[in-house]
Amino acid sequence: MVTPQDIKGWIEAGLEGAQVEIEGDGHHFDAVIVCPAFAGKSMLEQHKMVYEALGDKMKAEIHALSMKTMAPE
């Protein structure tokens, strides 16, 4: 079963400088992701960057991921 720590690790590996706070029960996860690379990007683009970082894991291991993304203040 996928743990929140797994997903945190995958996102942080794929998005340089990302800070991820995440909780979940193995099926549904809620993440807050702060990343300098999000600056100047739309919410749609930010979410796409997270999905790209997760790649095929999004299709297989992760059933449902809810996220909030933002650039650092």
């Binding site: 919410m43 979410h47 999905y51």
Partner: peptide, 22 residues
């Protein structure tokens, strides 16, 4: 975009349910 639901307005993807809510 790897997840469902997806909202389209005038042919353009707006986002999934998180983005819709925000």
């Amino acid at each position: 975009w790897p997840t469902i639901p997806q909202l389209y307005v005038n042919g353009e993807l707006v986002g999934g349910s998180d983005i819709m809510m925000e």
